[in-house]
Amino acid sequence: MTTANLRDWLLSDAPTSRRQARFASWYKGWLTLRSNTLAMVGLIVLALIILAAIFAPVLATHDPYAQDLGQRLLGAGHSGHLLGTDSLGRDIYSRLLYGARISIYIVLLVAMVAPLVGLIVGTVSGYAGGWGDVVLMRITDIFLAFPRLILALAFVAALGAGIENAVLAISLTAWPPYARIARAETLTIRNSDYIHAIRLQGAGPFRIVTRHIWPLCISSLVIRVTLDMAGIILTAAALGFLGLGAQPPSPEWGAMISEGRKYILDYWWVATFPGLAIFAISLAFNLLGDGLRDMLDPKEDTA
């Protein structure tokens, strides 16, 4: 099949099979995303960061853990250190590359756990209504009432230090806003005629919530998650700083910033480069999230 043929097949007004329809809707989604320049910038930046993380051993010029006190706090470009060195003489460029692995790992884990918990709690409480709703929402409120870091601290203190526990703690503190959003969406959806209609086909609550309500909540959650990415990385960093997240020699970006903070006035690059990395990844997530929303949103404005 030539590309022109393929394109026609994908964009056909009247797909003939379920498979064609599915590919067509993915392809159309991709076209929407592609026509959004900013989202594409976000996607490319993210892809680059992920590639950098994967190929860190190839791209790195130094061992990220190798200390060389003689070369400490060198400026960018000095004696083969592309982005300079930190207070222990470690190459910042190489550490950033390896750090990308940890940061992406944290972000992805949190991004998978927290919205999922929020989605489940929010939709169940919104759809069930009554007492279930009241109880679930009060629990959510309790979680919301604590500052996130303090709560995370408490969890980590209970679970023990380490990246996985930090992730768990952050996820456990990050879900309430998602639950709120999901519940609000569910409240607007649950009385609509199409939900009534599927009930009349004999569908049970489990099916309705997972197959009919979730798809409609996901787009607003995606936006919110991408907006929260930066916050998640920084919370992880703060935990690391307090000695409860990623442990010192590991090149986690947040930990690198907090380390560099001591020297910010005289040796700006130590904190700035990891900061730029965090900035880049969160901006990329935001831009991509915006594009994803356009892609996921139902085009309901023809009325």
């Binding site: 009534h196 009349l200 009919h212």
Partner: peptide, 28 residues
């Protein structure tokens, strides 16, 4: 079975005609 008053509100915005009908049939 029932048909609702407002055709603009009685179809799930994210489901194709095929999905709507096959789900109904599957449920029965």
């Amino acid at each position: 079975q029932m048909v609702f008053q407002d055709p603009y509100a009685s179809l799930h915005p994210r489901q194709t005609v095929d999905r709507v009908l096959s789900e109904a049939m599957g449920l029965h």
